[in-house]
Design a protein around this nucleic acid. Structure first.
Length: 412
RNA sequence: CGGAGAGUAGUGUAAUGGCAGCACGAGUCCUUUGGGAGGAUUUAGUCCGAGUUCGAAUCUCGGCUCUCCGACCA
């Protein structure tokens, strides 16, 4: 992508009143645009990051047998009546302009929808287990949207639902999802604590959250840094300073953001939707369900909270919008442009996603500042003053040197 | 949903009852070209609605929106 053709621009000043690092840098860099509190447009750069994250999630969920599908955002009232969740306060009701009453809710979760569908297709133990998921925009009328992408009223979520003939089988799959989640967050560069959370009325045991340490987080958890045991403060069984229940360590308290969660639902929704199957011995039983979410936009925001310095974002390579940032620096002469264009073409041809700052009449300071802000992992600078490798020098945004040799082959 | 603060040009700000100004951005011209360049010139603004007043960005009332703290949630 040639930066001269990118329709967004960077902003020099941080948005007024905005405090969180992710809202600041993502807005200034032109990754996102705020349309309303907690409602964001993903601009081309932000969209690329989200695509990288969804690709990773899709790969890992497919690997545990998830079947991708797409459910509607308009969810019929009758479904919510069945589950008793019509009046849940986070819901946005949707009504036709000329209709008297709202007949839909903008989906804020999809247990109801999939339970309804499953009840038409599942009839025998032979149909179980199965798991289906989607990436979808969810709508929740949060009383207070805040912290940029960390808590929005409209956000992209990966929601996975699993269906089983027994609790045993549910918990077998639950462990698989847990492992998949661990891989997903690790690949996104996040260290996530697998955290015990209170289940509430909706589940048959505790639920689990994946929490990433950051001051911008809204949750407080106690963790053992030795073995990784973690518990949400709301559970209240363990306190900071106490001995870890799993090992010799001592529990620490920290602020964190929940990037994912997994719920053993049991039969709440299968009962509401009459979702039953015949066992091998011919009895009719309710399907046992689990549900598993990952907030995609929240992952993106969390990564920015974790990976930034005073100048901007430092994307982990796996989810960076581009891998290389090629900069023409100094006076852009025809000769210099030729060196840059050649290198750009070579990189693109080799499948290296490259943002090429080919802007003319933009000062070096501006280009470097923009590059720092955008946070693309590898920076290749083409300039008259660079003596290395025919006017090209390579730097890594995060400051480490060892990976730079990757680009040697392109610098002939 | 409770509490607090704030809405002035695309962005950031000044003007506290009396000519809406500055910087960045954007346009044009010239100079400059390795860390947010310089000069000239142009562009563009008081959230909405009432009220007080000779006169309102400024004061009053109502609304809308945003931010922060709290409660609640992926």
């Amino acid at each position: 992508m040639r930066q001269s053709e990118l329709f967004t621009k960077t902003l020099k000043d941080a948005p007024k009143d905005e405090v969180s690092a992710n809202a600041n840098f993502l807005t200034r860099g032109g990754f996102i645009f705020k349309n309303a509190a907690g409602v964001y447009t993903l601009l081309p750069l932000g969209f690329r990051v989200v695509q990288k994250i969804t690709d990773i999630v899709r790969e890992e969920i497919n690997a545990i047998g998830g079947q991708e599908m797409a459910m509607p955002a308009l969810v019929p009232k009758e479904y919510w009546d069945k589950s008793g969740r019509w009046d849940v306060e986070v819901g946005f009701e949707a009504k036709g302009k000329h209709e008297k009453t709202a007949n839909f809710v903008l989906g804020w979760t999809h247990e109801e929808v999939l339970a309804e569908i499953a009840s038409k297709y599942i009839s025998s133990y032979e149909d179980l287990p199965f798991a289906a998921y989607q990436f979808q925009t969810k709508f929740r009328n949060e009383a207070r949207a805040k912290s940029g992408l960390l808590r929005g009223r409209e956000f992209l979520m990966k929601d996975l639902y699993s269906f089983h003939e027994s609790e045993n089988d549910l918990f077998r799959y639950y462990e698989e999802v847990k492992k998949a989640y661990e891989k997903i967050f690790a690949r996104c560069g996040l260290k996530a604590f697998y955290t015990v959370a209170s289940g509430g009325d909706f589940t048959i045991s505790n639920t689990h959250e994946f929490q990433v340490e950051t001051e911008a987080g809204e949750d407080e958890i106690v963790v053992c840094r030795l073995c990784g045991f973690a518990e949400n403060k709301e559970v209240g069984k363990h306190k900071a300073g106490e001995r870890c229940p799993k090992c010799e360590g001592v529990l620490d308290k920290l602020k964190a953001v929940e990037v994912g969660n997994i719920f053993p639902l049991g039969t709440k929704y299968s009962k509401a939707f009459n979702l039953k199957f015949r066992t091998k011995s011919g009895e009719s039983e309710h399907v046992v369900m689990g549900s598993y979410g990952i907030g995609i936009g929240r992952v993106m925001g969390t990564v920015v909270e974790v990976y930034h310095d005073k100048n901007g974002i430092i994307w982990p390579e796996a989810i960076a919008p581009f891998r290389a940032h090629l900069l023409l620096v100094g006076e852009v002469t025809d000769e210099l442009k030729k060196v840059g264009d050649n290198l750009y073409n070579k990189l693109v041809k080799a499948g290296i996603e490259t943002l090429y700052d080919d802007r003319v009449d933009v000062g070096a300071g501006v280009k470097f500042a923009d590059a720092d802000l955008l946070g693309i992992p590898y920076r290749l600078v083409v300039s008259e003053k660079t003596s290395v490798k025919e006017k090209v020098e390579v730097k890594e945004r995060g400051g480490k040197e060892e990976k730079l040799m990757k680009f040697e082959e392109f610098l002939d």
